[in-house]
Design a protein around this nucleic acid. Structure first.
Lengths: 156, 156
DNA sequence: GGTGAAACCTAGCCGTG
DNA sequence: CACGGCTAGGTTTCACC
């Protein structure tokens, strides 16, 4: 299998990286601001950002919300393992409707998936775990988060 | 200790939640769009969003980047435990400079912290783990992510 | 790809109810 | 707390290089 180019920032990658870093920190930065930061004209910046969006490097823009302020102060990691090895393993699809599940990763190691969940209380976590077990026919191993020092730091 | 109101969305919480959901999905939505979605005037929406920002419910705006497209296709969870229990435990501060660490949580259970890291390759992960161990004087237990079904789903 | 200018639209701040 | 109007500034597209 031929090596696929993993980096889609060929021309003037430094400028594109600067734009991505700026937009990752402030997704509402105006093209005027970005232009002064990278030393290009407004329309050149606009063009590059549009390209980055079309290439899928920028997949969208979002507001960062304070989970505590919206009533979801509790976070936990839930490692899950299927009970019946014979059945098809479609746990991610079976769990997608549970909005308390913020992330779902397939992982190496003794467990099959790692979930990150966000709930209002220990009671809500208990209820969620029951729902996860019955919806996906899995056992759960939960690690409760006590405090978060940083989260979602931009990759650039 | 008196119970602190964890939910800062007192008046017309339904409208605020709709705004938060819309902004979480599209952080660049114009106030005109938001106004039609919630059925209020543009200036009313503008006012409410400013309030949500000032109350800290909205902590900022950011571009969502495709990690693979920026050359960081590999994710892992790293559970760390201090080696010397006598020393002060300031691991989060000692690790903050490592930009490959996307998140750092203090957790319950046998490990002290759970890190989420994002790197370019297995080699890069190996190097990062060495840096983590020497910078924070900890042992590491790493769970490699094989694939990600969803990630950073909005909490509203 | 980059530039600068023109047309359109929006953000941000009034005062009013 | 919501409304609508105003002005400055931003977004978007154009022909040109």
């Amino acid at each position: 299998m031929a090596a696929e180019p993993v980096d889609k920032l060929e021309p003037r990658a430094d400028v594109d990286r600067a734009l991505l870093a700026a937009l990752a920190r402030d997704g509402r930065a105006s093209y005027t601001e970005l232009a002064t930061q990278v030393g290009l004209s407004v329309s050149a910046v606009h063009q590059r950002v549009r390209r980055l969006e079309q290439r899928g490097v920028i997949t969208g823009y979002g507001a960062r919300l304070d989970p505590k302020a919206v009533g979801l102060p509790m976070v936990a990691f839930v490692a899950i393992t299927p009970i019946d090895v014979a059945q098809p393993d479609d746990a991610p699809a079976r769990l997608a409707h549970l909005t308390a599940i913020e992330a779902c990763h397939s992982v190496a190691g003794p467990d099959s998936y790692m979930l990150k969940v966000r709930v209002a209380s220990p009671d809500a976590l208990e209820g969620l775990l029951a729902q996860i077990r019955s919806a996906a026919n899995v056992t759960t191993r939960t690690t409760v988060v006590l405090s978060t020092f940083y989260e979602d730091r931009p990759p650039v």
